[in-house]
Design a protein around this nucleic acid. Sequence first.
DNA 1: TAAATATAGATAATAATTATCCGCTGAAAA
DNA 2: TTTTCAGCGGATAATTATTATCTATATTTA
Lengths: 144, 144
Amino acid sequence: MDSEKRLEYLSRVIRERGNRLTPQRLAILRALVDNDGHPSAEDIHKEILRDFPTTSLATVYKTITLLKDIGEILELGFGDDGSRFDGRKPYPHPHLICTQCGQILDSEVDNLDKLIDSLAFPNQFSVKTHRFDIFGLCSDCAQK
Amino acid sequence: MDSEKRLEYLSRVIRERGNRLTPQRLAILRALVDNDGHPSAEDIHKEILRDFPTTSLATVYKTITLLKDIGEILELGFGDDGSRFDGRKPYPHPHLICTQCGQILDSEVDNLDKLIDSLAFPNQFSVKTHRFDIFGLCSDCAQK
DNA sequence: TAAATATAGATAATAATTATCCGCTGAAAA
DNA sequence: TTTTCAGCGGATAATTATTATCTATATTTA
């Protein structure tokens, strides 16, 4: 997905919604779509501070909340380390999470929805979304 | 799994480890292995209070931590609602989580490990554990 | 029974996130 | 251009599950 195109898309949706696209908010969006990792709220905040040194951490959370309402950001909440976000691929997908260095890798798989349906069906469960995390060691950390 | 047998097993492991089996701790273990749902720390605490009215919530957390160290309890952490625990099936397995009523259903599936391996292999990722949550509406809540 | 130490209970601390408050800003209408 | 008005930014307080701390007590073992 092209970052610039996604930024334009998010900007348009936000404006159509009646929300405002302030410079700080735009910077937060840009940081999210440019980051191909899984930044925390503080990661984003630090990045914003370069251009807008007075930005509050609360402002970052507010825009993240807005994106959550729109459904255009994926939140990976961890009890302890707080949450990490994905503003590029907001749909659920498996993650490989290194418990050593904290790196989060995206993973792709076919037919996961089919598997999920087969789990939900016997319980007459109506699926809305899911979360699939795989914990272990990334290749770098495994070698040590 | 027979609750009584599991209680005996946990008691033995705890003693072999050099930990003590106090009445409060035994009551917490019993509450965990008897509960076929996914209680929170407070749920357990409330249950213990019937027999040991002075028990502190911290005591519940301490025993849960002990069980986590042993690997004999499964923790399902949620950012907001806190954690829910499974003292009967401490190994990872999929869960169907109703976002309406909060009910958590266990699910069983064959070959999930194989799927996980197929995801980990291309990244040379060494798998240790996983978490697979499916969110939606249970049959009761879906009908309303 | 006595000694050694893990534990219980009470309470304070932690930390990510959210709520609150107020002055400001930007867009739309007059 | 001016006015209006709601959304927003920034600072700070509040929230809340969990963890840490501390001391008296209870449990295990010899």
